[in-house]
Design a protein around this nucleic acid. Structure first.
Lengths: 207, 207
DNA sequence: ATACTGAATATTTTATTGAATATTCACTGC
DNA sequence: GCAGTGAATATTCAATAAAATATTCAGTAT
């Protein structure tokens, strides 16, 4: 009477394959990692990998998905931290996200390249990630409304607005264009200006 | 006693070459345009082009520079329009820039690709363009301060902050990720939120 | 000296092909 | 049926040579 083992065996193999693949992708990148190598790490034949994944692209996509989830988890961690004001959470969200994006872009260029590549054929993954981020931001805005810090009419729409204004700090391309310090200061400033706006009485989302 | 003709001849040839090159770049792109073709359009030999430009990359760079200047001119047009409030100018700046970026990305993909390529080896061009944009935004903020619409302590720094928050709408990559309408609405919302913040009394730039 | 050219040379792009890798499939042991 | 394999086939990569193009240069005309 185990609790929901469902497909324990098959699933754990899948996870194992992803772990092995990710480890190699990190070091050698997607193109320089062969199915044979991943299979060898798992003590199986290359052909057997196809029992768990449709093809190599699918393994890459699943890896990218896990990376993106890590980002969302990070945000969730901040948003669900007890004892922080909404304004503090908003700032931490922006700065944590920036830190993570920066570090990934610099310390794990291979994985970053992998994610960028996968995203090209899975636009929906980006939209899903953005939506999750916005949901979390909406939570913060709602908290701000309750505590009286903010006065936001439409938390969902405004979350999207805030997310758009912070886009620059989420996107790897900009990481190589500016120094880390500059980005941190800039992010702080943008958040401060946004918070100032969220307090305002007269902000009306269009339509 | 002409007024400053300086290098009239040589300069007009340079402009002619750039016009010819740009026309071909627009249609065929940088790589599929040869020096021989540009030279033929100008009724000269390919080797003679080198009297006016160091090499092909330089012609491309000069073309990219002209495109970027067009953008800045657009912004300047909005900022120097008489009879608009600072808030109206800010919104028009954002929307005009978005419209231009969108149209360029969609109608002139070759030129866009050219600019992106050139930017890689001339980072300074980006920074210069950003600085010019920020100067113009700073003008608007200063106007807002004078008219009482805004209360901005450091117009230069805040201009950079506003520019960062609007980054998403200036950068071609995002143009293919969202529908034009969505971007327009989102830009409007971001500007509205920023304006609301610029009115606030308590916004302090960090450091 | 300035504006220019055609021929010579250097560099880049393109095409080709053999090798490496991805993917499929018929088959084995449980 | 499920988990797995090795051999066969399809696709992609990488090295190379050939062709196209960029760049230089010696020289002409004004």
């Amino acid at each position: 009477m185990q609790p929901k083992p469902v497909e324990t065996t098959s699933d754990s193999v899948r996870v194992g394959i992803l772990d092995a693949a990710e480890a190699r992708f990190r070091i050698y990148g997607l193109n320089k990692t062969t199915m044979a190598e991943i299979a060898h790490d798992m003590d199986m034949s290359a052909s057997n990998l196809y029992r768990y994944f449709k093809n190599k692209q699918d393994i890459a996509a699943a890896c990218a998905c896990r990376c993106i989830d890590t980002q969302t988890d990070l945000l969730r961690g901040v948003v669900r931290t007890p004892g922080l004001s909404a304004a503090e959470k908003l700032e931490r969200c922006a700065l944590e996200m920036l830190r993570y994006t920066w570090e990934t872009a610099h310390d794990q260029p291979r994985i970053n390249e992998l994610v960028n590549h996968v995203i090209l054929e899975h636009r929906d993954m980006v939209h899903h990630k953005v939506q999750e981020s916005c949901s979390l931001l909406a939570e913060v805005l709602a908290q701000g409304n309750e505590s009286g810090e903010f006065e936001v009419a439409d938390v969902v729409k405004t979350a999207e607005t805030v997310h758009a204004a912070l886009k620059m700090f989420h996107v790897p391309i900009f990481m190589s264009l500016y120094a880390h310090e500059v980005l941190m200061l800039r992010a702080r400033d943008v958040v401060a200006l946004l918070i100032s706006g969220l307090r305002g009485r007269d902000h009306e989302p269009s339509q």
